[in-house]
């Protein structure tokens, strides 16, 4: 009996040991899996060798080729384009973020602070853009714009084409939902008594919103905007289908480079984009810290 117990105990200890080892092992392996590719990308952006993964020496040529068009064939074509693409991305991201943040915040307020019959329908409408595959959204906008533009051409004779405005329209459409979800969770945490108190003290609705609600939910709005901006800068699929010729954003430009040929210049531009997103993450963390302290 005693012997059997110790055997069982040993078995339990073995399981515990395996569990511990597995937990640590898988965690380390998973973190390695997440970061190794990024690290390799950065390292090889400084590699002299163009063709393969053998380390041949340190160089900044790939970065230079991005900015000044030195060296590689076709690099001078790239130089102008990359700045255009970056500029386009920032434009699209900026406008789409501002509009989507305003619309998304408004609808989030409506959902949290009002009771109305069509609430479930509105929630479903906001939920759909998040779950529907990007590519269906991209092609549906392509279909929509081509039909509407055809119609406009037959009626007025004006010929409209896809471009940055159509990209921005699409980006606003998918960003509204993300902003609404983010801001809504912040409003839900807010104590309604604060707003009631303001109204009891004689503030009207607008004043209550402006002086009480808005400052309190501002961190939520900011993180919603940040999410929208990141998603917008990151988006390839919807932009790809709604951009048309000559309105390339940075991801579409990178996609073109990848499809054309694999050169370390792509590593260089990827490294720069990585650094930009690290900076955004750090900035958002700093903002959160500050809002917590306030």
């Amino acid at each position: 009996m005693r012997n059997a117990l110790t055997l069982e105990r040993r078995w339990d200890l073995a399981i515990r040991f395996l569990g511990r080892v597995g937990l640590w092992g898988i965690t380390l392996a998973a973190l390695l899996f997440l970061y190794l590719p990024i690290a390799i990308l950065v390292i090889y952006s400084f590699n002299t060798s163009r063709l393969n993964a053998v380390w041949r020496g340190f160089t900044l040529d790939w970065y230079r080729s991005l900015f000044a068009g030195i060296g590689e064939s076709g690099a001078d074509v790239i130089t102008g384009q990359i700045w255009d693409a970056l500029f386009n991305s920032l434009w699209v991201g900026g406008i789409a973020t501002v509009v989507a943040t305003v619309f998304g915040t408004m609808v989030a307020l409506a959902l949290e602070r009002f009771k109305f019959r069509q609430k479930t329908a509105l929630e479903a409408l906001l939920f759909l853009p998040i779950i529907i595959p990007d590519i269906t959204m991209g092609i549906s906008l392509l279909v929509f714009f081509s039909l509407v533009f055809q119609l406009i051409q037959t009626v007025t004779g004006v010929r409209l084409v896809l471009g940055l405005p159509t990209v921005i329209i699409g980006h606003i459409a998918f960003n509204i939902s993300y902003v609404a979800v983010t801001v809504r969770s912040r409003i839900a945490e807010l104590d309604p008594a604060l707003e009631e108190a303001a109204q009891d003290l004689g503030a009207n609705e607008w004043r209550t919103f402006y002086r009480v609600t808005l400052p309190l939910i501002f961190p939520g709005i900011l993180s919603g905007a940040l999410l929208a901006f990141t998603l917008s800068l990151d988006d390839f699929v919807i932009t790809f289908f709604t951009a048309g010729v000559g309105s390339t954003t940075l991801p579409v430009f990178v996609y073109g480079m990848i499809k054309l040929s694999v050169t370390p210049a792509i590593n260089a531009i990827s490294t720069l984009m990585l650094m930009a997103s690290f900076l955004i993450v750090l900035a958002s963390l700093a903002l959160q810290r500050r809002s917590l302290q306030l």
């Binding site: 997440l34 590719p37 990024i38 390799i40 990308l41 390839f236 990178v254 990827s270 990585l274 997103s277």
Partner: peptide, 21 residues
């Protein structure tokens, strides 16, 4: 945060990294 950082980096860039590997 270590898990989230890759999530914030560009999808295309992350996929491209695997070509290099």
């Amino acid at each position: 945060l270590l898990v989230i950082i890759p999530f914030w980096t560009n999808f295309l860039v992350r996929i491209y990294a695997w070509i290099i590997i």
